Simulated assay, not measured.
Amino acid sequence: MTTIEITLPDALAAEASGAGLLAPEAIERLLRDKLASDRIVRLQDARAALAADPPEVLTRQEINEEISAYRKGQRLAAGS
């Protein structure tokens, strides 16, 4: 576990404490919710970017060539 210290204005600290928001469980929940929300926003941004500029569609042959090249690289890296 990590211990953190934060500095808040007195009025905000009192109000947050009164609402139970300074309890470790509450802070953990707030942080996890914020991190999840940020991940969703990044995912939505990535989806919008892909929709605006979709990648080139590969043919089945191109996909197989990419797979073969990857496998060859893996064999070479393994010394086979």
Rank of each mutant, 00 (worst) to 15 (best):
K34W: 09
E66L: 12
T3A: 03
T2I: 11
L21D: 04
T2G: 10
A19W: 10
Y70R: 03
Q61L: 14
Q74H: 13
I63L: 13
R60C: 01
L76N: 14
D53M: 12
A26Q: 13
N64M: 03
S68N: 08
P54E: 11
A49R: 13
A52M: 14
A48V: 14
E25W: 06
I67M: 04
V41L: 03
A78V: 02
S37A: 11
E56C: 04
L8N: 01
Q74W: 10
K72H: 06
R42Y: 03
L58A: 05
S17T: 12
G73R: 07
M1W: 05
A23G: 02
A78G: 09
T59W: 01
E5W: 03
L58V: 07
E25G: 06
L31S: 06
E15T: 11
G20D: 01
L50A: 11
S68L: 05
L58N: 03
A78F: 13
D10S: 11
D45Q: 10
I27Y: 09
A36G: 02
E65H: 09
P9R: 12
L43T: 12
G20I: 00
A77H: 11
L58R: 14
P55I: 07
A78H: 02
E15F: 10
E28S: 10
S68E: 05
L8E: 04
L30Y: 01
R47I: 15
I40F: 02
I27L: 12
L8W: 07
R29L: 02
S17P: 01
S17W: 10
A52P: 00
D53C: 11
A52Y: 14
P24F: 00
V57L: 03
A48F: 05
S17E: 08
R71N: 07
R47S: 03
E66I: 12
D45P: 09
L22A: 01
S80T: 09
A69K: 12
R32H: 13
S17M: 14
A46E: 06
Q61I: 00
I6W: 02
L43M: 14
R32C: 06
A11K: 02
A13F: 05
T3P: 07
R42D: 13
A16I: 00
E62W: 02
R32L: 15
A77I: 06
A16K: 13
S80A: 03
I6T: 14
L43A: 08
A19R: 11
L12N: 06
R39L: 03
I63R: 09
A78T: 05
R39S: 05
L35V: 05
A11E: 11
L43V: 07
G79C: 03
A51W: 15
P55Y: 04
I40Q: 14
E28L: 06
E15L: 15
A46H: 11
R42E: 15
A51H: 07
V41F: 00
R29H: 07
T7N: 08
E15K: 15
A26W: 10
I4M: 05
P55K: 10
D53P: 01
A49Q: 15
G73M: 08
I67Y: 08
A23P: 02
I27G: 01
A23N: 06
P9N: 09
L43C: 06
G20P: 00
G79T: 09
A46W: 02
L8I: 00
L12G: 07
K72N: 09
A69F: 03
K72L: 10
E25K: 13
D38C: 00
L43S: 07
R32F: 04
A26D: 15
I27S: 06
R29T: 08
